[in-house]
Design a protein around this nucleic acid. Structure first.
Length: 428
RNA sequence: GUGGGCGUAGCUCAGCUGGUGGUAGCUCCGGGUUGUGGUCCCGGCGGUCGUGGGUUCGAGUCCCAUCGCUCACCCCA
């Protein structure tokens, strides 16, 4: 394929039938969250660059090197959103939603953008579903979000999920702890790899993410944030766990789970589907009580998470599941008599208005070809109209499973189809 | 951004050490005596061998570059 004729690197074309799967996944997400009182929020795909810079943190990879940043014709620096949370909080503050009953619960679905190396399950334009509860620090909210997120996965038929959970305390806990951690890192500096040493200054918590075995061994002995968290944060976390336990939700505690965006505080979690390999993280979230203040608003607690739709779909496909059962066609209109086509197509419209799923040959196929097409798309019934039927002002209605067919006058066709397929009659 | 693998019809793939692109399978379209599908048989459509250079009498096959996919690192959804 020559250049210019292919979609840009790291982007995806969504075409049938896969596009239906994506849509069904988002629809399911909507159902689950609207039943829980969440409303849909749609914000721009691009925002002022500073919104993300101030919230996700300069030290994060996502903001530091993966953002699509551009200048518009008015000289403004804008960025394609790399994630939803910052925009949700921005909208909350901008529109004074703090006067709504709290917490304000929002869900959204849409494209996010990150300039990262492309791999299966990691795209530069990708789809996230997202939910945020802003304005309450009640641990019940954290737990409910986790429960709803898992509900989405399992309702799609995804099995074998892993949930990891951690608390990283409050920013005020973080200072003293970070000093302790830095001291530990400094004491072992000679044995740590360069990447970890770089993290020491930028964001020492990320040092726990190292995959270098020698460094990982040293980090295993490092002080854990979980052990240096305030009493309030520890109690908060214990309550989150109580709500999860009461629901029978299984999780593993992972004191090294830090997450890549700087705004997180207290609860953090990650859901993975291990069989996906390097891109196994299919969802993650956490509490961000300091985010609102970071972008200049009143201090406002919040929790939220996002899931990667493409990754979840890959996992479903690997399990041989499709989130979108094909909608069966009720009637196929096979019309051979050329003169009959306009009338039959008009009747088809009428049948569609009556709620039936209908198709007709749109490629000038012969009789045999049209029947073949009807059976290929799985039509339950086929309306046949050739020269003979047309001359009589009627048609043949064929049951595609039994092969039985009966003659029905065109004037009565739609009523007949509706009665036999939906059970509805005009008299009723 | 770094390293490895790959790139032949819409899809799945043959193509040995360079010598004229495959009767390949699937899909699609048509036919198998007047107008009846999912099986079978026959026929047909369909390829700038990802792209651009180079070596050579000659390159799908070798070399370089580039684009894309993929795996790992990395990052995270």
């Amino acid at each position: 394929m020559s250049e210019g004729l292919q979609a840009p690197r790291g982007t995806l074309d969504w075409l049938p039938p896969r596009s239906a799967a994506r849509r069904a996944m988002i629809d399911r997400f909507r159902e689950i969250f609207e039943r829980a009182g969440y409303g849909e929020a749609m914000t721009p795909v691009f925002e002022d660059t500073s919104l993300f810079a101030r919230t996700a943190g300069e030290s994060s990879e996502v903001v530091g090197k993966e953002m699509y940043v551009f200048e518009d014709q008015g000289g403004r620096s804008l960025a394609l959103r790399p994630e939803f949370t910052a925009a949700m909080v921005r909208a909350y503050l901008e529109h004074g939603l703090s006067r709504e009953p709290l917490p304000v619960r929002l869900w959204s679905a849409g494209s996010c953008y990150r300039y990262a190396a492309v791999q299966r399950g990691r795209y530069r334009e990708f789809t996230q579903v997202n939910a945020e509860a802003i304005g309450s620090d009640d641990p019940a909210v954290d737990a409910e979000l986790i429960a709803l997120q898992l509900e989405w996965f399992t309702s799609l038929g995804l099995a074998g999920l892993e949930l990891r959970l951690n608390t990283i305390g409050d920013p005020t806990d973080r200072g003293p702890y970070l000093e302790r951690l830095r001291a530990y890192l400094d004491a072992h500096l000679d044995d740590l790899d360069g990447e970890v040493r770089r993290q020491r200054d930028l964001n020492p918590l990320r040092a726990f993410d190292t995959k270098v075995p020698t460094s990982a061994a040293i980090m295993a002995g490092a002080p854990k944030i979980t052990d240096h968290v305030s009493l309030a944060a520890a109690e908060h976390f214990a309550t989150v766990r109580a709500f999860l336990d009461a629901r029978g939700i299984e999780y593993t505690l992972d004191p090294t789970l830090v997450r890549g965006l700087d705004y997180y505080s207290r609860t953090t979690w990650e859901v993975s589907w291990p069989a996906l390999g390097a891109q196994s993280g299919i969802g993650g979230g956490g509490r961000y009580d300091g985010l609102a203040a970071a972008i200049g608003g009143a201090p406002t607690p919040g929790v939220g998470f996002a899931c990667g739709v493409e990754r979840v779909l890959l996992a479903l496909e690997e399990q041989g599941r499709s989130p979108a059962p094909a909608t069966p066609t009720d009637v196929f209109f096979a019309v051979v008599a050329g003169a009959a086509r306009p009338r039959l197509h008009a009747l088809m419209d009428e049948a569609r208005r009556a709620g039936l799923t209908c198709e007709a040959d749109l490629a000038g196929r012969g009789f045999k070809g049209q029947l073949k097409q009807a059976s290929r798309i799985g039509a339950a019934w086929t309306v046949l109209c050739g020269d003979d039927e047309w001359a009589r002002g009627s048609s043949l209605v064929r049951d595609m499973t039994t092969g039985e067919q009966s003659e029905v006058p065109l004037d009565l066709l739609v009523g007949h189809l509706r009665a036999t397929i939906t059970g509805w009659t005009d008299a009723a």
